[in-house]
Amino acid sequence: MARTNEAERKGIGPLALLAPGEAGLVVGLSAGGLVRRRLLDLGFVPGTVLRAVRRSPLGDPTAYSVRGAVIALRAADANNILVRRAPESTGATAAAPDD
């Protein structure tokens, strides 16, 4: 998936921008109500480190490793989570992307 230059510069963007293998730090949730509640329940809490693990063969959803569990989110839903891309993730962890 293409990353926008702007997001690249700031390093902050919606979760769906993480390519498989990349890690990020949750900085905030843009959803409200039940969706926000559910994301918090699953451990998408500000300050959490997570990693995009793999994408579905049809392109969506993407599975994220968060606190030892693997949770799949559709891109539209993953955009409720704002992350800062972890700088080190572009090196070592990105070495094993899917496919």
Binding site: L34, R38, V70, I71, A72, L73, D77, N80
Partner: peptide, 8 residues
């Protein structure tokens, strides 16, 4: 919105 867990 929904989530799907992929258990080990």
């Amino acid at each position: 919105f929904y989530t799907l867990e992929l258990p080990p």
